[in-house]
Amino acid sequence: MKHFVTAAVFTYPHEIAILRHLLQDAGLQFYFENETMLTVVPMYTQALGGIKLKVHVNDLDTVKLILDEFERGNNLKIV
């Protein structure tokens, strides 16, 4: 895990539901740090710094493209 970097930070577990599938479909190496803890105790989000999307350094550019496309052209906004 030492070659993984933070690509994005999310506040709540529901924000990563669709993104997880997009990253898996792309075949990327990733994990969400603090996901389990914030699912159990959501009020710890500020104390833990949110849910961090960690990706392999080699996949960072691809993940940024996926994140940009997801934010820009997505009709499935989670509110």
Rank of each mutant, 00 (worst) to 15 (best):
E15C: 12
T36Y: 07
Q24S: 14
T45Y: 06
I18L: 00
V55F: 03
L48H: 00
K2L: 11
L60K: 04
L19Q: 02
L22T: 10
A47K: 13
D61C: 07
N74I: 10
Y44T: 13
F10H: 12
L23A: 12
E69V: 14
L22D: 05
M37K: 07
L28K: 10
F70H: 11
N34L: 04
A47P: 03
Q29R: 04
I78E: 03
M43C: 02
F10L: 12
L53W: 00
H21L: 15
K77N: 01
A26T: 14
Y31Q: 00
N75G: 11
N74V: 10
H56N: 08
D61E: 08
Q24E: 15
K2Q: 14
L23M: 11
T39Y: 04
H56I: 06
L38T: 00
H21R: 15
A8P: 11
L76P: 01
N34A: 05
Q46Y: 12
V57S: 12
L38D: 01
G50R: 07
V40S: 05
K52Y: 09
Y12C: 14
F30H: 09
F30L: 00
E15K: 04
T45V: 09
V5K: 09
L28W: 02
V63N: 01
T6S: 08
N75Q: 13
F70D: 11
I18K: 04
Q46P: 10
Y31C: 03
V55W: 01
L48Q: 01
G50M: 05
L60C: 07
I78G: 05
P13D: 11
K77V: 08
A7I: 10
M43D: 10
N58E: 09
V55T: 02
Q46M: 13
T36A: 12
Q24K: 14
K77D: 06
V63Y: 05
H56C: 08
N75S: 09
F32C: 09
Y12Q: 14
H3P: 11
H3V: 14
K2F: 13
T36F: 07
Y12P: 09
M37P: 03
I16G: 09
T36L: 02
F30C: 05
D61Q: 11
A26D: 13
D25Y: 04
N75W: 02
R72L: 10
T11K: 13
Y12M: 15
L60E: 03
Q24V: 13
R72P: 02
L53E: 03
T6L: 04
I16H: 06
F70S: 12
V63E: 06
G49Q: 11
